[in-house]
Write a protein that binds this DNA or RNA. Sequence first.
DNA 1: CTGAAAGCGCTTACAG
DNA 2: CTGAAAGCGCTTACAG
Lengths: 344, 344
Amino acid sequence: MPFEDKKKSRVTLIDVARRANVSRATASLVIRKSPLVGAETRARVEEAMRELGYVYNMGAARLRAERSHTVGVIVPNLTNPFFAELLSGIEAVIDAAGMVVILANSGDLVERQNMVVRRMREHGVDGVIVCPAAGTEPAFLHQLAEWDLPLVQVLRQISGEVDYAGADYADGMRQAVDYLASLGHRTIAFAVHGPIHSAYHERVEGFREATQSHGIDSGRIVRVPNQIGEIAAAAHLLFDEAERPTAVICFNDVIALGLSAGLYDRGLKVGENFSLIGFDDVTDAEAMRPRLTSVSTAPVTIGENAARLLLGRLADPTGPPRRVVNETILHVRQSCGVVPGSEP
Amino acid sequence: MPFEDKKKSRVTLIDVARRANVSRATASLVIRKSPLVGAETRARVEEAMRELGYVYNMGAARLRAERSHTVGVIVPNLTNPFFAELLSGIEAVIDAAGMVVILANSGDLVERQNMVVRRMREHGVDGVIVCPAAGTEPAFLHQLAEWDLPLVQVLRQISGEVDYAGADYADGMRQAVDYLASLGHRTIAFAVHGPIHSAYHERVEGFREATQSHGIDSGRIVRVPNQIGEIAAAAHLLFDEAERPTAVICFNDVIALGLSAGLYDRGLKVGENFSLIGFDDVTDAEAMRPRLTSVSTAPVTIGENAARLLLGRLADPTGPPRRVVNETILHVRQSCGVVPGSEP
DNA sequence: CTGAAAGCGCTTACAG
DNA sequence: CTGAAAGCGCTTACAG
């Protein structure tokens, strides 16, 4: 066996074919699990692959087959646990489909997003899942369409003509407002931060509509810092206006955690003389004291939905756009209370 | 121009070469920014690329060049914000190096880890950064070495003979114990959960050594649930033994958050009649009340270090193993107090 | 600085 | 069910 230890040269399909006494085409069929090849032959080929330590070369396969078994995922942020959970859902279903995810962080910057998607295209991704950076123009979507690069929008949507997986933020707001109204609250603030995008607008609109439907004067939207450590110190913003709110709904749980601290610092007792509702219902909600009432948005599920949408799109590139909007659910815990003097 | 709208066919290097009146080899040199080609020629080629909408085909390039500009990252978990931050650091430097990360979640399961690394190898990753699943055998590392797949261990280490980026957990424990001892604490618990691995052992050892050096009896290690929502209810475990601790150091901030709630539920005042120290110093620490004193471990930095280590390894595959162990720093906030009746 | 040729490892028709 | 040939889009020597 004079060639046994030619370690340097990679073992290739032709090597296993020779070893198994079949043609290269047959070996290729075995790999791709084609039913065309007989059980005995298949076994022989697989045996040869094992003996030789053969490893499939996706790169070569993709070159010929024009399919990379690779999907790009672009998120605006990685340090927010919300996105980590989203990613976890995406990764799970992409992995289960035998594909692999290429990850990139746009930092919520459109230029970086452009860079990154270009790079992914060079790497030949079969499609991309993107949570569009704030300020993304429809032109971005058109560009990808022109490139024939399948795309699904996740969490944030730029266009209704492209697949989208998200959650019903507006209905979540409605549930939160309904609940507070049922406890007698008449002036409710909405604390926001971060970039402006569709998910932002949907929540704000939901808040406006819900408060109006209860005859509550709306418009008290207060903007707090992005850094969690600075939010507590901004709690005073809630009380700067003449008509002081008795409750606040937060854009996300990060704000809720921060404001909860700020309220505490001011001597207010959340759940007793001030009510607080979070949004996202991320794991910490259960560990806060009082336990945080929050609108659950199930990021892992949204991620799974997005991945399935992309898989569907790859299977049917020309079908009509699909949207899957996950329902949101108000998870009532302990951070809200009845307004003193009101009859719930 | 009879071929202008043959949309289906991809524009390739030979197309731009023709357009620019150069050979394919020259066009290739332009792409790879070789200094061999003159400025005027370069400009002409770049112009042609733009006009034609050329996109580089990494897949084809990699096939020939045996380099994919791709690195695999395997983490045991994605929902823990700690890993999300780690990932963020890795992604940033890999991206800056013009490469791309392929992400996978091992779920802290060695069989999944095996699957995943095999898949990455098929995709031709140039190297991998892995936080080894609990129970990973040295054989795993040997396997990769045999495959000539460059590897850096991150956060957890299986072997000293392979590159590693982590933090000095033991010294972090020492700082925490020293601090508590200086406040007069003589019985200190250590709350742990999760899988057992090197980072676990390093913390436990650090705890043991530090307590012994203060003549404090060690050994009171209490194991709490993995789910954050269940940790609070397990706080009683701290007090089940005869000699009740006056302080607890937590394996991570997740536990600290949970126990903080549990202590509150029992009517204890953290920072006054009970002291609590976290580990990792993740963003929430600042938003807790009282603010959490925690050992900072800087996951983003560790991620950056790991990525740089891998880049270095790709440049020099045969050099001796390198280790970069980030220092840990006790970040003192408000969750610890003097033991009543002691003289600090 | 540029050109012609070979080849990376696979898959795809096309015959048998 | 199997074989021989061509080709995916690049890069790598090797000449000029």
